[in-house]
Design a protein around this nucleic acid. Structure first.
Lengths: 246, 246
DNA sequence: CATGAAGCGGAGATCCAACTCCGGTTGGCC
DNA sequence: GGCCAACCGGAGTTGGATCTCCGCTTCATG
């Protein structure tokens, strides 16, 4: 294990995790859990929390039996609440995504109203993404996967529009050079997601270091070579990636 | 699909792929295939090639039956040559790794003898890694996984020593700023691996763009902030990551 | 060319994780 | 309290993947 060097890394991570946990509870007892008998609604919430823990500890290979056991309910209950294991995972992804989108909305709304020297909205959003993802490592495989349910698709579009706006702001304030595209940001997020998942067990904060390098790579520099390989358009961002196969 | 923009991307990729294919054949007919009857050795080679293709097309979930079918042999033959499916995958990883190590040896040996403005050995090696990995997407999950067989472990150590040397050279020639550590390079490679795999189907060259950004992030820049999160040591590089779970 | 050790194919045994089914129980409304 | 729809548990089914087994065939050697 890593002993959390650097600034307040551990503290911010803990906060993000707590937020997400609260969000999971909210999702469980909120709209999706309405119309259920009290015991049923509570079991639904327990299942989501159990799944969240199980996936964080064992990755998405954690078995449904394990999840039911942790939640203290039977298999039947699990499958009455969630028609498939995938549905359960999607629900969790939803919670993660919601947190990311919410933060991006606030960050974008804040716009360029920042003290000079403060991190740009783009930077802030990317670090927030990392934190939320680190708090849910193991549940990330469904994030940004192609062809999500339509309502989720709409919200994904919104997120990337916000990111695009923040990218423009960052360029305007000189934090990012003009040739950087939304696709570049997208690629960084995809890579960040994998890195968070891969290093979660051994060095849960190291993704920050990677993200700093990438952000440095976005920054304008006098003698910098232009990027040679131009991505044509943002179709990748708009359509997402196919389901992971590993 | 992507239409291979920028420089000679397609050409270099094709070369790397051909190299790797040849390497696969060599591995099959070489030392590992010695002592086998002619038909058996040939079947071994066919199996490796079939597995290589199947994994590239369908990811590591490609079934053993599919591999045997492609190779034109029966299941029995597959399992007589390779005790488990994992063993087969490890053999392929071995081939990929061999190509990477070989290139790193040459690149490191060339040292600082480069025309000014030419890419550093580090840069060249990273691009080569990307090319080889892109030519074998789907077979990468076992690469750099923790606790490989001892002989492989030794070679992994060698690779990262070479990378470390090239990192020093790059710092000396001003291509990389001093605070960048071997762990940073390692993280980039891990991220690159995932990115190559994730984007292989839709934008097989886009990893180049990502890698350029990272390399730009490594480059010295006058007003650059120092990286805040210091990795303590290179234990991650030395020990590798645990098996992926996705 | 005769011999047998090594190799071959592929049906089916085995394993494992997701999912279903149903007899018994519980919560909420009258 | 009484009723019943909704809910619960968990043993068992299903499906899909890996791996084994054995009667037949092929290669290499004397």
């Amino acid at each position: 294990m890593n002993d959390s060097r650097g600034r307040n890394a551990a503290a911010t991570t803990a906060t993000a995790t707590a937020d997400a946990s609260a969000a999971a509870t909210a999702a469980a007892t909120g709209s999706a859990g309405k119309g259920l008998r009290r015991d049923a609604a509570e079991n639904r919430a327990r299942l989501l929390r159990a799944a969240w823990e199980a996936f964080a500890e064992q990755g998405p290979d954690a078995g449904v039996e394990e999840i039911a056991r942790r939640a203290g309910v039977g298999m039947g209950t699990l499958y009455r609440r969630f028609p498939t294991k995938d549905a359960l995972i999607n629900e969790l992804s939803e919670v993660i995504f919601e947190s990311i989108l919410e933060h991006a909305r606030m960050s974008a709304a804040l716009g360029a109203d920042r003290a000079p020297g403060q991190p740009s909205g783009l930077e802030e959003s990317l670090f927030h993404m990392g934190e939320v993802m680190a708090g849910h490592h193991g549940c990330l495989s469904r994030l940004w996967q192609a062809s999500p349910p339509p309502d989720q698709d709409e919200r994904r579009t919104e997120l990337w529009q916000l990111m695009d706006r923040m990218l423009d702001q960052a360029k305007a304030s000189g934090d990012v050079r003009p040739e950087v595209t939304l696709t570049d940001v997208y690629l960084s997020v995809i890579a960040l997601r994998s890195l968070v998942d891969d290093t979660a067990g051994q060095a849960p904060d190291l993704w920050r270091r990677y993200l700093e390098v990438v952000l440095a790579g976005f920054r304008p520099a006098p003698g910098a070579r232009p990027l040679a390989y131009q991505p044509a358009d943002d179709s990748l961002v708009r359509h997402g990636l196919p389901k992971r196969r590993h």
